[in-house]
Design a binder for these strands. Structure first.
Lengths: 351, 351
DNA sequence: CTGAAAGCGCTTACAG
DNA sequence: CTGAAAGCGCTTACAG
């Protein structure tokens, strides 16, 4: 005999299938004694429910929504593709994922996006956005309705989100710091630090981790005041150039946010590609190319495919009320050199 | 109306469910014209088969076997645990995984193990072993019986295996070389290279990649002739000590195989923990500890959990005749510093 | 070559 | 509070 089924439980407990189903699913309206009889049968036979058969019978579908910023960056483009790809793969598990791109900074647009998500009746929502009081309220409202919520890429630690799918940005900054320190053989020097905006929590965390490590272990390197690039590589190019003009002895650049193109443009124009140690974040077509040519020394990456799949698995697990495999859902701080650059996939233009 | 089902196809094509099933599953005994009618209906309605409903109906189970060396190393212990954990997670998909530990070098034991696997009727086999003529024969025999075969950790490139689940060890060696080079600020020096045995292909590949990079980019570092530790940290300790005694100016150690404990023991006894750059492979309780204390500078890791899950997904995909998500099945060469060391999971003693 | 009916393991109205 | 029957999307003998 194979694994026990509801039929076996019913026979063993001397009840009907309907009653077995009731106690298995914790529905009310069963006598205490009957509940116990069924539970004992379950225990004795070692019954474990077949979730996919159950989902088939109840025609269960999981409606999830992904809310992403509409900023046009290569990283976000890659993330969007990764979400689509993961959604396709999980459609076999009856997941239905809808992605919404929204101007996260615009309260009206954001409100609208949330209304649509609520109207669609999503059971799970994944959100990538900076933490704001408004975002916290939105999340609280979703939670009040029993919706599963995960923050992706950027955490919402003060909110009621169920889970965070992303890296520890303080540790990522520390990692960047160590690599900058150890790769800077030239001795003393100044380091330019470029971020999108210091209003973003992940940027602040990265900068903090980076500074900690430099102070602790590489006192010969001094990190210059943060310059902000606002997700725009023309601005990044301008501020990077200004920084190089106004400081002597710059030996490295930590590009903690988007806009790497601005950095590499300036560096290459000035013929500094060889000398400068450049540490960047996120594998994109451009950062891959720069890694290959040796302009960028190392990229700290968070795997978009993994993040998309993990968000979906975690949301589903919440809906099913089951545990996840913790180690599988831990998003790694990947260190990518030219030598261990994946041949394709992650951050690549096309498949 | 939701997704089309076999009923819809049957109605649309004007045939019975049984006939739909026949053409869907490519079974013989259907008139050409009928086949075409059904296929047209499938195309018109955009039908896509529900694999888990099909598996439910046919009571499909996937019997897989994992064949691992019985060598008692921390890495293998971790891998074994990862396989068990993945097997548990995939039991919901009807996977039944049995792991066999065998003295891979012993032809008799190996024969026996294969006989047992064949007797059990496994439909998929994952093998971690050095490539030998005998192993090639075994794999050929499995393939002749239609069994799906994947090589894990160490490839069997000359065999008929369907897939390799593991890292590119040449690239891993190059990665180790770059890190050794860039972390060696002290200038010229000699590097000790420790492997299990140069009879193992992955060790040869790692050594080769390491040497390439040193020659190309770090000529001031010279890698000493390989020393073999035979998976035994006492031997490793002895040969490492000998190496240090017989060479002046050793500044780094590349531990490409098991036996890191031997290396760190010698290095610590001699008070060289700070000065020596140590690059090792595989996250284990010991390598984690050494990373934390700073004795080991960097660990090149292949994620055991990922490898176990990937092997199972790939085997299942082969049985189902479907494609895998290439990017998900690509095993990364992970670079692990103290700063990006995962808090728990991978290579940890307990959960 | 083709189809009606029963069944996989579970759930859902409906009746009592 | 409990059960008989039908059904989820698919497959499998069995008959014809």
């Amino acid at each position: 005999m194979g694994k026990p089924t509801v039929h076996d439980i019913a026979r063993e407990a001397g009840v009907s299938l309907a009653t077995v189903d009731r106690v298995l699913n914790g529905r009310a309206g069963v006598r205490e004694a009957t509940v116990r009889r069924v539970q004992e049968a379950v225990g004795r036979l070692g019954y474990v429910r077949d979730l996919s058969a159950a989902n088939l019978a109840r025609q269960r579908r999981y409606r999830f929504a992904f809310l992403l910023p509409d900023t046009p960056s290569q990283f976000l483009h890659g993330l969007h593709r990764a979400v689509d790809e993961a959604a396709l793969a999980f459609s076999a598990d009856r997941l239905e994922v809808e992605t919404t791109h929204v101007a996260i900074g615009d309260p009206v647009a954001l409100q609208q996006a949330f209304r649509r998500i609520e109207a669609r009746g999503a059971e799970g929502v994944a959100i990538m956005a900076n933490e704001t009081p408004m975002m916290r309220d939105m999340i609280a409202r979703l939670k009040a309705k029993g919706v599963a919520v995960v923050a992706i890429i950027t955490d919402q630690p003060q909110s009621e989100r169920d889970h965070f799918v992303g890296i520890d940005n303080l540790a990522a900054g520390r990692t960047a710091g160590v690599l900058m320190g150890r790769f800077s053989a030239a001795g003393p020097g100044k380091i330019i630090v470029v971020v999108n905006t210091m209003q973003a929590r992940d940027m602040v965390d990265r900068r903090m981790g980076f500074d900690e490590v430099l102070a602790e272990r590489f006192p010969q390197l001094v990190a210059l005041p943060t310059v902000e690039g606002w997700d725009n590589h023309e601005i990044v190019a301008r501020v990077t150039a200004q920084c190089l003009d106004s400081h002597q002895g710059v030996t490295g650049i930590y590009c903690a946010g988007a806009g790497l193109r601005g950095v590499t443009e300036v560096v290459r124009n000035r013929g500094l590609g060889e000398r400068m140690v450049i540490v960047s974040h996120d594998l994109t077509p451009h950062s891959r190319a720069m890694l290959r040519t040796g302009v960028v020394d190392v990229v700290i990456n968070q795997n978009a495919g993994h993040i998309a799949r993990s968000a979906m698995r975690v949301l589903k697990a919440h809906c099913d009320g089951v545990e996840v495999i913790a180690s599988q859902e831990r998003i790694r701080i990947e260190i990518v050199l030219k030598e261990n650059l994946p041949q394709d996939g992650e951050g690549e233009e096309k498949r």
